[in-house]
């Protein structure tokens, strides 16, 4: 579904990504692992056209526009960014409605999507009229994922969804992502916490210094020391 070829990105003179090749197949959950500053977030930002990059990114057989995140989102590639990107002064309901912006934020289809999201994250149902910024970090992350699902994505990308959250909340969110993937939603998950990501992933890429250091099968990983070696390669 997603095919990234020879993707490179720079911040001034610093090369953040170097000729990255990566794929996400239909129904796959692919993890991108690596230490802080390895280029994981830049990878997702480059795919979404938020960071200027060179190389080729195709989705479902056609090239994605290089510098228009909104056009890419309209193609069904949806990113839950690092830091969640929720609209804090707006209510939870407004945030969820904006997730379904492409279908006009109303009507039967919207109602069905909202019901689906609220069934996945029942806590949001109690908070619909509350401002998003007044919720806990975990609830905000649920909202960010829920809002992304309101777009009915064809590919969901998440940037460090566990960041700063309690383990119980992280487990809850990851279980939901695993369930969505099992229902057929392809997911590209950037995560620093390797054991967590590998528990759900079908495949994983390890990125270090802006390069793909290894592509691993989670079931073949015998110890995390093996992964750590790639981290510092």
């Amino acid at each position: 579904m997603l095919d990234v070829k020879q993707l490179s990105a720079r911040y001034g003179h610093v090369e953040a990504l170097h000729l990255i090749d990566l794929t996400v197949g239909a129904n796959e959950l692919v993890a991108v692992l690596g230490p802080n500053g390895a280029g994981k977030s830049t990878l997702l930002r480059s795919i979404m056209g938020l960071t200027s990059s060179s190389g080729r990114v195709t989705f479902a057989g056609t090239a994605l526009p290089r510098r228009s995140a909104s056009a890419i989102a309209r193609r069904g590639v949806v990113l839950v960014p690092e830091g969640r990107g929720i609209f804090a002064p707006m209510t939870v309901a407004e945030n969820l409605q904006l997730g379904a912006y492409q279908i006009g934020g109303g009507g039967a289809e919207f109602a069905a999507r909202l019901q689906h999201v609220l069934s996945l994250f029942p806590r949001l149902k109690e908070r619909l009229s509350q401002t998003a910024g007044s919720m806990s970090g975990g609830e905000q992350q649920m909202l960010a994922v829920g809002r992304a699902l309101m777009a009915k994505p064809k590919l969901l990308m998440l940037d460090e969804p566990s960041l700063g959250l309690a383990p119980k909340v992280v487990a809850e969110i990851m279980e939901t992502l695993g369930r969505l993937n099992a229902e057929g939603l392809p997911i590209l998950l950037v995560e620093q916490k390797a054991p967590l990501a590998l528990k759900f992933a079908h495949r994983a890429y390890v990125i270090a210094n802006g390069r793909v250091a290894a592509e691993v099968n989670p079931r073949e990983i015998k110890s995390y020391d093996e992964l750590a070696r790639y981290y510092f390669s």
């Binding site: 938020l50 909104s70 989102a73 960014p81 609209f87 904006l98 777009a151």
Partner: peptide, 9 residues
């Protein structure tokens, strides 16, 4: 940026 990620032009 977050608005663009929702498909808002």
């Amino acid at each position: 940026e977050a608005a663009a990620l929702q498909g808002i032009n």
